[in-house]
Computed example of a mutant assay.
Amino acid sequence: MNAKAEAGATGLDTVKLVAAASVLVVGLWGFYFFASYSLLLRVIALLALSGGAVAIALTSLPGRQLWRFGVDSRMEVRKVVWPTRQETVQTTLIVIVMVLILGILLWLFDMVLMSILRFLTGQGG
């Protein structure tokens, strides 16, 4: 690995992230400050400022690392062998049946323990 690849965030990256956060805060403030204006215009302006904030953040080292992580994650998801519809239905049914069986067993176990407790404490006839 070269030193440049392992270098941490610089001061300029911090400034970029602060600027992106500032743009986002200004956008949110403006959205509520201009409440008398059309909702459509305010939403469009908020989306535009949010997009600008994301664009600024993506120019920093942490932003580029986040983008790279997203690209790598998408590549890994493409490698996954997804189950067929039939496999999914069968697995779901097995889980449902097992949950029902376990629920019934726990209910019976609870009834037996409650009967023993009532017998030991002399309650319930």
Rank of each mutant, 00 (worst) to 15 (best):
G11K: 06
A21V: 13
A5H: 05
T10P: 01
V15M: 13
I44E: 15
D72F: 03
Q86D: 14
W82K: 05
L49G: 03
Q65T: 14
A7P: 06
L117G: 06
L49F: 04
L106S: 11
L28Q: 12
I44H: 03
V81W: 04
F119W: 09
V43A: 15
G27Q: 01
R42C: 04
T92D: 07
S38W: 11
A5L: 15
T121C: 10
S73K: 07
Q65H: 15
V95C: 06
G30I: 00
I101R: 08
V25P: 03
L40T: 12
A20E: 00
I104C: 05
V26S: 09
R85D: 07
D72L: 06
G122Q: 03
T10V: 07
T121H: 05
L117I: 05
K79Y: 01
Y32A: 14
V43T: 11
I44M: 08
V23P: 00
V97N: 10
A21T: 12
G70C: 13
A35V: 02
E76Y: 01
S115W: 08
I101V: 13
K4L: 13
G11S: 08
T88A: 11
I104K: 02
L93E: 10
G122T: 03
L49K: 00
R118L: 12
D110K: 02
F109V: 07
G51A: 09
L105R: 04
V15P: 03
V54S: 14
T92C: 10
G63L: 00
E76G: 02
W107I: 09
T88C: 12
K79W: 01
L113T: 08
L40Q: 10
T91R: 06
V95T: 09
Q65E: 14
M1V: 07
G8P: 15
A35C: 07
Y32W: 15
A55M: 09
S22V: 14
S73A: 12
I56K: 00
R78D: 13
S38K: 13
M75A: 14
R42A: 04
A5T: 12
L39F: 13
S36V: 11
Q90R: 12
F31G: 04
I101N: 05
W82C: 05
V25A: 15
M98K: 06
L41S: 15
G11C: 04
L113A: 10
A53I: 00
G103M: 06
D72A: 10
F33G: 08
A5W: 02
F69K: 14
R78P: 01
G63I: 01
E6N: 14
A5M: 11
S60L: 00
V43W: 01
L102I: 10
S50Y: 02
I96A: 07
T121N: 06
L105C: 06
L61F: 04
F33N: 13
N2S: 14
V18L: 15
L108W: 01
L40R: 11
I101C: 11
L28F: 09
Q86Y: 08
L61C: 12
L120R: 02
L24A: 11
V77D: 12
T14L: 07
I96E: 05
V77G: 04
R68H: 07
I44F: 06
V18N: 12
V97W: 05
G63C: 02
L17E: 01
L113Q: 11
T121S: 13
S36L: 15
I56P: 00
S38C: 14
L106R: 02
V43R: 00
L12I: 10
G30W: 01
A55H: 11
A48R: 00
